[in-house]
C-alpha cells in the first residue's frame, strides 16, 4: 500500500486534487482544428489533381465551414488563456521545441488562406449579384486574382494542413508528465481522425453521387487506420512503464471506459464503418447517419483524451 497526502492543506484551484487546467474549449478547438485541416487537405488535393470541376462538394461547399471552424477554434483557444491580453506574445518568437508555438504560427498561415479560399468562390456562391456595380468591381478583381493563384494556395495548404492536423495530437503527446498523452502515436492518430471527420463533412455536403462514393471509400480507409492506431495506442500503454499502464486503466475499466469504447470506438468508428461498407455494397443508408456519428465520435474522442490525460501523472 502506498498513500500520499498533502499535510499542508494544499488545494490550488484547477490543480488539486486533479489537474484540470485545460477545459472544454481546448477539446472543441482540437476537434475543429482537425476537421478544418481534413477538409482543406482534401480540397487542396482535389484542386491539384485538377478534379475541382467535378468535385464541387469538397472544394466549394465543405470549405465554407473551414474559416468558420477555425475562427471559432481561435476564439475558444483565446477564451481558455488566463492572460489573453498578452496572446500577441506568441508571434514575437518561434520556439521549435514548443508544439504550441508551431500551432500558433501554422494557424496564422492556414486561417487567412482558408478565408481566401472561400472568398475566391464568392462569385459562384452569389451568381445573381451584380459584380460590376460600384465597389464590387474591385472585389471581383480581387476574387479573380485569388483564383489565378489557387494552385499556389493549394500547394501551401498540403503541407500546412498536415502540420495543423498532426500538431493537435503532438500538442498533447509532447507532455511527458501526462502518461496518457505521452506516446508517439497520438499525433498520427489525431491527424487520421481529423482527415476522417473532414471526409465525413464532405460526404454530408456533397451533391454528387460519385463524389460521395469516393469520399465514403476514403473515410472507410481512414476509419480502419484509426482503429489500428487505437489498438496500437492501447498496446503501447500495456507495454510501457507503470505510469502508462496506470493511464490505460482509465480507458480499460476506469472512468472513461464507456465514453471511449461505446461513444468513440463503437458509435464513432465501428458502426459508421459498417454502414459505409453496407452503402458501398448497394444498400440504401441515409448518408447523414454515419457522417454525424463520425463527427460526434471525433468530438468525444478529443474530450476523452483531454480530460483523461489530465488525470494521469507520475507517482512518487
Amino acid at each position: 500500500m502506498k498513500e500520499e497526502l498533502f499535510i499542508s492543506g494544499r488545494h490550488i484551484p484547477n490543480i488539486d486534487p486533479h489537474l484540470h487546467i485545460w477545459h472544454w474549449p481546448i477539446s472543441v478547438y482540437l476537434f475543429l482544428g482537425g476537421l478544418a485541416a481534413g477538409v482543406l487537405f482534401f480540397a487542396a488535393l482535389v484542386t491539384l489533381l485538377g478534379k475541382e470541376k467535378e468535385m464541387t462538394g469538397v472544394v466549394k461547399r465543405a470549405t465554407i465551414v473551414v474559416p468558420i471552424a477555425l475562427s471559432f477554434g481561435l476564439i475558444f483557444l483565446i477564451y481558455d488563456l488566463k492572460n489573453p491580453l498578452y496572446s500577441w506574445q506568441l508571434y514575437l518568437t518561434l520556439r521549435l521545441e514548443s508544439p504550441m508555438s508551431w500551432g500558433a504560427w501554422i494557424l496564422l498561415l492556414v486561417t487567412p488562406i482558408s478565408f481566401l479560399w472561400t472568398i475566391g468562390y464568392f462569385k459562384e456562391y452569389f451568381i445573381y449579384w451584380d459584380w460590376e456595380k460600384g465597389i464590387w468591381k474591385y472585389v471581383s478583381i480581387f476574387i479573380d486574382y485569388i483564383n489565378k493563384y489557387r494552385k499556389v494556395l493549394a500547394w501551401i495548404l498540403i503541407p500546412s494542413t498536415i502540420i495543423l492536423g498532426i500538431y493537435t495530437g503532438i500538442l498533447l503527446s509532447a507532455f511527458n508528465a501526462r502518461p496518457l498523452w505521452n506516446n508517439a502515436i497520438l499525433g498520427p492518430l489525431f491527424l487520421t481522425s481529423g482527415l476522417s471527420t473532414g471526409a465525413a463533412l464532405i460526404i454530408l455536403v456533397s451533391a454528387s453521387h460519385k463524389e460521395r462514393r469516393m469520399f465514403s471509400i476514403i473515410d472507410l480507409i481512414l476509419i480502419i487506420i484509426e482503429l489500428f492506431l487505437i489498438t496500437h495506442l492501447i498496446m503501447g500503454f500495456y507495454a510501457g512503464p507503470q505510469v502508462q499502464q496506470e493511464a490505460a486503466k482509465l480507458l480499460m475499466g476506469g472512468e472513461f471506459t464507456i465514453m471511449f469504447w461505446v461513444f468513440v470506438v463503437i458509435l464513432g468508428l465501428a458502426i459508421p464503418a459498417i454502414m459505409e461498407i453496407m452503402e458501398l455494397a448497394g444498400l440504401r443508408i441515409p448518408v447523414a447517419v454515419p457522417v454525424l456519428l463520425v463527427l460526434l465520435g471525433g468530438l468525444i474522442f478529443r474530450f476523452v483524451m483531454v480530460d483523461a490525460g489530465q488525470l494521469t501523472r507520475y507517482l512518487y
Binding site: 490550488i12 484551484p13 484547477n14 490543480i15 488539486d16 489537474l19 487546467i21 485545460w22 481558455d80 488563456l81 488566463k82 492572460n83 489573453p84 491580453l85 498578452y86 496572446s87 506574445q89 506568441l90 514548443s98 504550441m100 509532447a174 507532455f175 511527458n176 508528465a177 501526462r178 489530465q310 501523472r313 507520475y314
Partner: peptide
C-alpha cells in the same frame, strides 16, 4: 509580462509545481 496563461507548462510539470496566478500569469 510574456506569459499568456496557456497552461502548457502546468501540464508539462511532473510535480504539479506551477499554478495559475489569479492575475493570469
Amino acid at each position: 509580462f510574456e506569459c499568456i496563461g496557456c497552461g502548457a507548462c502546468i501540464e508539462s510539470c511532473p510535480y504539479d509545481a506551477r499554478f495559475s496566478h489569479p492575475e493570469g500569469y
